[in-house]
């Protein structure tokens, strides 16, 4: 059974798309004249008005002393506080009787980047860093050993703004 359909009759200027298309293109072309806001990552990693926040918590870095040795004294506080249980530490003693980390590893895959390790460290040795480019070809490369942690050069995180420690 046929259904009777009522066809509305409209004026031409009402159903023509031309006006809308031209309007859209006008907007598009007007953008050509505006300054670009797209950051050309990875060639560009920061722009005038955007950079990684200072309190960004990313891949770790172990700071070193003047002789290039890790500042860590293997006190055991960071493995204790770490909520992800991803820091492995075996303490040892060097020739001068100083306590130092024989083994120090952080599994960056398990890390939740809470920054507690940096906060608890009495020696200002371990830090979370202003860093986020972590691609690797294998999973085990994400376990950073002491050498690799010391070799990182990225800036470290400022966990809080010293002038506003309470975040107010």
């Amino acid at each position: 059974m046929a259904i009777s359909v009522k066809v509305m009759q409209r004026k031409n200027q009402e159903i023509s798309y031309l006006r809308a298309a031209l309007k859209g293109m006008a907007l598009t072309f007007s953008h050509l004249k505006r300054p670009s806001v797209t950051m050309q990552y990875p060639e560009e990693t920061k722009t005038e008005d955007w950079k990684l926040p200072e309190r960004w918590r990313g891949t770790h870095r172990m700071l070193t002393d003047e002789q290039g040795r890790a500042k860590c004294v293997a006190c055991g506080l960071c493995p204790q506080i770490c909520p992800a249980n991803c820091i492995k530490l075996v303490p040892g003693e060097d020739e001068e009787g100083h306590r130092y980390p024989l083994v120090y590893e952080i599994d960056e895959f398990r890390c939740v980047f809470c920054g507690y390790c940096q906060e608890v460290c009495p020696e200002e040795a371990i830090h979370v860093g202003q860093h986020y480019e972590n691609a690797e070809y294998s999973r085990d490369r994400f376990v950073y050993d002491l050498e690799r942690l010391c070799a990182q050069t990225h800036p470290v995180s400022t966990l809080w703004d010293p002038s506003d420690a309470r975040g107010e």
């Binding site: 004294v73 006190c75 506080l77 100083h98 306590r99 009495p122 020696e123």
Partner: peptide, 8 residues
């Protein structure tokens, strides 16, 4: 010395 002290 607490960080390196065994008594800690």
């Amino acid at each position: 010395d607490c960080p390196i002290c065994d008594q800690s």
